[in-house]
Amino acid sequence: MRNQIANKVVVITGASSGAGRATAFELAEEKAFLVLASRNEQVLEELAEECRKIGCEVLVAPTDVTDNTAMHRLAVKAFEWKGRIDVWVNNAGVLAAGTFEEMPWEAHQKVINTNLLGYMSGAHAVLPYFKRQGEGILINNISIGAYVSVPYGGAYTASKFALRGFFESLKGELTGWSGIHIVDLFPAFLDTPGIQHAGNYTGKVLKPSPPVYDPRIVAHSVKSSILYPKSTRYPGGASLLFKIGHSLAPEWMSKMTGLLMKGYFKVADPAEKTDGNLFQSVDFSMSTNGNSRPRLTPHGRRMLGLGLAGAAIGLGLYMLSGKRNA
């Protein structure tokens, strides 16, 4: 079964919408055995039926990733279904936006519990099975937010930075387990319903910052990671360039993103404050795409790449010049 996806048991958390849903469809086409997990059982059942029509077998497993006991039950259920777990995709995540001190403390906690501890809990649940089998692939949909901070999203940023550190540590711990792979995905901004589901304490309508990519780029990266596992992938060319820009001038990047956010909030339409899907699942916009604009066209991607590359080179030369003059 090496280098193929058919009949591999794949667990996907956060499968009900966005990148998780796109990944389910992608792997259904490859005839994987899918274990779909999220808090919304009704939506999972609808997704499972669509995947079965494509021609794959599906197990629905309603699960809250903030509950470690439930995550271990998910692993047991997946293993007992087919006698093994080949791939585990950590994907469930939430977003909360607002001024740090004005946002409810419980919202900060929920973001950390879902985005950070939920992923750690997934690893905690599945690694014993991988070690028993001597093989397995753990794929983490982390986000470029692990390198570039999100002003007014402090807990989100903390969770993503921490995920990068945790999985780097775990990769070192698994040295010697040649059949076990951890793959971290760092996509740029995605056109998912996630921003519509977000906890929003800003009083303004939230929109993703361009460039905005189709979530299928994550699904394609998951597929590639199963076939050819590698430590890191950057779905959407912009994310790697953002990482390079941050490594060259982190303070400049933070100030610029902060100024951009402040500028947006000055002109954004008003919106009611809401907890979104932080504390319970929602029943709207449970789709793959969120229909955000602007989408990034091929020409736009080329122009963005050239612009970011030029900015990175310019920043690098500027910093080198500063060091020489010091």
Rank of each mutant, 00 (worst) to 15 (best):
R2Y: 12
A24T: 07
A24M: 11
E26I: 11
E26A: 13
A28P: 08
E29C: 13
K31N: 14
L36T: 07
S38V: 02
R39I: 08
N40A: 11
A48M: 06
A48E: 08
E49I: 06
C51L: 07
I54F: 02
T69N: 07
M71R: 04
M71L: 06
R73T: 00
A75T: 00
K77Y: 00
K77H: 00
W88C: 09
W88M: 08
V89M: 05
G93H: 00
G98M: 07
H108E: 12
Q109H: 12
K110M: 11
K110A: 02
I112T: 13
N113Q: 06
T114C: 08
G122R: 00
V126M: 01
P128Y: 00
I137H: 04
N141D: 12
S143K: 02
I144G: 10
A146S: 15
V148K: 00
V148E: 04
V150R: 02
P151I: 01
P151S: 05
A162V: 13
G165H: 10
F167S: 12
E168Q: 14
L170G: 06
D184I: 09
A188H: 02
F189S: 08
D191F: 03
P193L: 07
H197Q: 11
Y201K: 03
T202K: 00
T202R: 01
P208H: 00
S209Y: 04
P211A: 06
D214P: 05
D214R: 04
D214F: 05
A219S: 09
V222S: 03
K223A: 12
S225T: 10
S239F: 08
I244E: 03
S247N: 15
L248I: 14
S254H: 11
L259D: 11
K262D: 13
D275G: 06
N289A: 14
S292G: 09
L296Q: 12
R301M: 14
R302M: 14
M303D: 13
G305N: 07
G305W: 02
A309I: 15
G316L: 06
M319Q: 14
L320S: 12
S321N: 07
